[in-house]
Design a protein around this nucleic acid. Structure first.
Lengths: 209, 209
DNA sequence: TAGATTGTTAATCGATTAACAATC
DNA sequence: TAGATTGTTAATCGATTAACAATC
């Protein structure tokens, strides 16, 4: 793999490629050209070839790409076979919904534990995941590998908890709160799901149709 | 307002500006320069001024911007005072969580109804929103204004339902399913929340730290 | 072989940043 | 007035698209 200077735009397209290739695999399609793939995804063939060239040479002249092989390769680039370990902080409605419905394993993540302040959920399990009291958080992190923390807690305490976790060595955050988690360290990676931002862009585009 | 050729990148920054200005308002800050705002948001002052210039002239030389005024203006641009009407399709865990926790009103949306196939939820209300059977969907849309439909239903039926709704005149979708909803008509606006894509980009960035 | 399609280099396009005259 | 800061034009940078030699 080359992987020097991979732009954010490219990275954001990788999961889409992965998704499309999963579908093609399921359909039993064996090979595909950048041109056809581009048509299906509304992307130029050039862009696809350019994107893939950041990571290696996966195609064959005159033939195109082997669907299954490319699927595996992109999965590998995304790290789906790295078995990352993840915990969740805040098991309210949204946390519950994610634990129940989201296929963490499909993205290569194992959900080991969740934490909450409310005694009504601590001690229980949601979809097999044990819910612990927040007091056990620090000890847990010291004792276990935690690659990503899902922040599904009230936004008022999000930054504070994140700071504490960063101190404890956590380097990945999946942030569902409507605030920007800030952190000077460049090795700390924060990915945001900002529901409100998303809905507001939709609002804009409806208003300016 | 000018609003010709506003790029997607600019549109995606608007909610962030709006959020930051909401905070500044709450803090009682009266005026701010593009330079200070940029520092707070990790954006260049140039970019802020360039972005805002797409929509009008909101500042004053030598002074900067009035925080409250700019907040109102950007809210207006985003359409938060348009009172859009919204319904939800699929009231599983995620739909429930959104109805319970998400502040639709803050983004200018009124949630009028939700629809589901399951008799265990139809006929009930969640956070004041009535849940109807899917059979009532078509009649409802014919009789009411529906600006946006939230798709929190199984991905297997997402495209099919979306097609049906587009036929009935719906022009805005907030899609939470892990599939790309396709539609030829350019006046139909689709905004995606792709959880899996988001987590996979985080996985990539952790893997390539 | 001839046709198809890659990976890569070059050209174009668009977005970000810098500079500055205008002016509060 | 002098200092600060805007809105806008010009310069730069980066991302997308086109072109094409290499080759399966």
């Amino acid at each position: 793999m080359k992987k020097e200077n991979v732009s954010d735009a490219v990275i954001r397209r990788l999961p889409r490629y992965y998704r499309q290739l999963t579908e093609l695999c399921a359909k039993g399609v064996v090979r595909i050209s950048s041109h056809s793939l581009g048509q299906e995804m509304n992307i130029t063939a050039s862009q696809i070839r350019q994107d893939l060239s950041c990571f290696g040479e996966f195609g064959q002249q005159g033939y195109g790409y082997n669907v299954e092989e490319l699927h595996t390769e992109i999965g590998h680039i995304l790290g789906v076979d790295n078995d990352y370990h993840l915990i969740m902080i805040g098991v309210g409605n949204l946390g519950h919904a994610l634990l129940q419905n989201f296929h963490f394993a499909q993205a290569g993540f194992t959900v080991d534990a969740a934490f909450d302040v409310s005694p009504s959920v601590t001690g229980t399990r949601v979809n097999g995941v044990p819910i612990y009291s927040m007091e056990k958080l620090d000890d847990y992190i010291r004792a276990h590998r935690v690659d990503v923390v899902v922040l599904t807690l009230p936004q008022s305490i999000a930054q504070e908890i994140a700071d504490r976790l960063i101190d404890l060595g956590v380097r990945g955050f999946w942030n569902f709160t409507n605030v920007e988690i800030t952190c000077g360290q460049p090795d700390v990676k924060i990915e945001n799901i900002h529901f409100a931002d998303s809905l507001l862009t939709l609002s804009y585009r409806i208003a300016n149709r």
